[in-house]
Write a protein that binds this DNA or RNA. Sequence first.
DNA 1: TTGGGTGCATAGCTTATCTATGCGACACTG
DNA 2: CAGTGTCGCATAGATAAGCTATGCACCCAA
Lengths: 148, 148
Amino acid sequence: MTRSDDDLGIRFLSAVARLNRWVNKHADLPVPHAQARLLSLVEEFGTARIGELAAADHCSQPTMTTQVQRLEAAGLLRRTADDTDARASLVALTPAGAAALEDARRARAAVFGPVLDELDPADREAMSRMVALTDDLLRRGREARETD
Amino acid sequence: MTRSDDDLGIRFLSAVARLNRWVNKHADLPVPHAQARLLSLVEEFGTARIGELAAADHCSQPTMTTQVQRLEAAGLLRRTADDTDARASLVALTPAGAAALEDARRARAAVFGPVLDELDPADREAMSRMVALTDDLLRRGREARETD
DNA sequence: TTGGGTGCATAGCTTATCTATGCGACACTG
DNA sequence: CAGTGTCGCATAGATAAGCTATGCACCCAA
C-alpha cells in the first residue's frame, strides 16, 4: 500500500463517517438509530438468532440481547422458539416493526433527497459503485468469519 | 425525485452506514470513537469554542461540554480563555491529542488497507468522488447554517 | 442602567455498548 | 448411558454517548 493509498483510504473513511453522521443527525427516525439498524438487519435475515444478529451487527451478544428485548417490548420484533435448539430463539419483524423500518428509510431518504437531485450521472455511477463495493466487502467479511 | 433515485439514496446510505460501522468496530482505536471524532474536528478548526464544535459535530452543547471535559481530563485537549468573551473558552489539541488522533487514523487505515489493495482504478475514482461530494455537502450545510 | 439574548456548566434521564459470569442445552466420546 | 466440554443466551455491573431542561454569568443594544 502506497502513501497516496493511505491518504485516499483515510480521506474516504472520514467522508463516510461524516456523511453517515450528518444523515443520522438530520433524519427524524421513529426509533433510535441503533434500533433502526437492527430492524433492517432482521428484515434482511428474515428470522435470525441473537448470536447471528450480534455477529452481523459487529456487537457483543449481550448487547444484542438487550436491543432485541427493547424492540420486543416495543412490539417491533417478536421471538419464537427455535425447533432445532432449545437454547435459542428466532427473532423476526412484527408488522409494526416493518412499518417503523419503512418510516426510518423514508426519513433517511428525505434528508438525502435534495443532495441526490443535484447530482450528475458520474456521481450516481460512483454511488452505485460504492454500494456494490460495500456489499462485496461485508459479504466477504461474513464469509471469512464463517470459515473461521 | 424519482423512485429509482429513492432506491439509490437508500441503498447508498445503507452502504455508507454499514461500511462506517464495520470500520469502527474493527479498528483498534486508542480512544473511544466519539472522542476520536472530536479530536479530528478540533484539529480541523485549530481552536474552537464548545458551541462551534457542537454544531460541527451535530450534537447538543452539553454533550460537547462533556466530551471536551473527558478529553481535557485525559490530556488530549486543552482549554484557554477566549479574549473576546469571558463566557467562552478555546479548545485545542495537545501534542498527546495530536498523537492519539494520528494513531486513530492509522488504525482505521489499517482496517481498510487490504480493501484498497484490491481496488481497480474505477473504484478509486469513485471513492475520490465520494470524498469531494461529502466535503461539498457538509460545507454547504455549514454555510447554510451560518447564514440562518 | 436595564432587559433580552448568548455561551456554557450542571442535573437528570435514556440508550448503546462492553466484559464477566452463570445456567441450561447440546454434542461428542468412552 | 454418563461424563465432559462447548455453545447460546440472560443477567450483572460498569462506561460512554447523547438528550432536554435549567441556571448563571456575560454580552450587547436601547
